[in-house]
């Protein structure tokens, strides 16, 4: 951790200094973890993360710089934007894992695009069930069959995510062969999430029409 160029106190975040209130210029290569003052790794305490977001937001909030000169104002704006996007990545399990995988030079989603045929068949079946439910009347068998399917998919999502967590903690070495498995799991998660999002949308639509 570096120290504040204005007052010399150790910095918690490269965004600014909590001790003297100095607003600092953020380097283009600052990582989301660095911005949030966290070590790079999958394990993150959500309560601590939330506190960091709020604490650092006060340092860079553009409202505090409304009357400052333009350079400082734009520094506050870009600092807030960087803080928010860093938080979005680190707070989301799948996005955090994806970021780590890239940082560790693991394969990208397109490097590992091929999923097992059985899995894709399964995805097709989920979508067919969804399509059937969408076309049938509320309260019909096809509609009620969706509830247990959604539960199954949510459980599968949780178990895939747990495997991702296990594979990234402790942090593997850059380029480790095991990263390929992690990428495949993150790809599977995307298919699950797409289907689950459509199921939720159908449920909301149904609730709205009631």
């Amino acid at each position: 951790m570096s120290t504040c160029p204005s007052c010399g106190v150790e910095l918690e975040t490269p965004l600014g200094c909590a001790a003297c209130g100095a607003l600092l210029e953020l380097g283009a290569d600052a990582t989301p973890f660095e911005i949030l003052g966290l070590p790079i790794g999958y394990d993150v305490d959500p309560t601590d993360l939330r506190k960091r977001l709020l604490r650092f937001s006060r340092l860079v909030h553009p409202d505090f710089y409304a009357t400052a000169d333009e350079a400082l104002r734009s520094r506050a704006e870009s600092g807030s934007a960087a803080l928010n996007s860093a938080h979005e990545i680190v707070a989301d399990d799948a996005r955090r894992a994806d970021w780590l995988l890239r940082a560790l030079e693991g394969p990208s989603e397109t490097d590992e695009r091929q999923m097992p045929q059985e899995f894709l068949m399964e995805v097709l079946e989920w979508n067919e069930a969804l399509e059937e439910a969408r076309e049938s009347a509320p309260g019909s068998g096809a509609r009620s069959a969706l509830t247990p399917l959604e539960e199954t998919l949510n459980a599968e999502r949780a178990s895939v995510l747990a495997e991702v967590a296990r594979s990234l903690s402790p942090t593997p070495a850059p380029g480790a062969p095991a990263l390929t498995e992690t990428r495949k799991r993150l790809n599977a998660l995307r298919y699950l999430d797409r289907t689950l999002a459509e199921m939720r949308a159908l449920r909301l639509e149904q609730a709205a029409n009631r």
Binding site: T110, R113, L120, V123, L124, R190, Y191, D193, R194
Partner: peptide, 28 residues
Amino acid sequence: VVGAPECGDVMKLQIQVEGDTIVDAKFK
């Protein structure tokens, strides 16, 4: 059956073949 991991889209394409000619094709 193929899928796009970028977005979670999935596509099934089927062909019916006679000799070496594709006489019919269906997709979902």
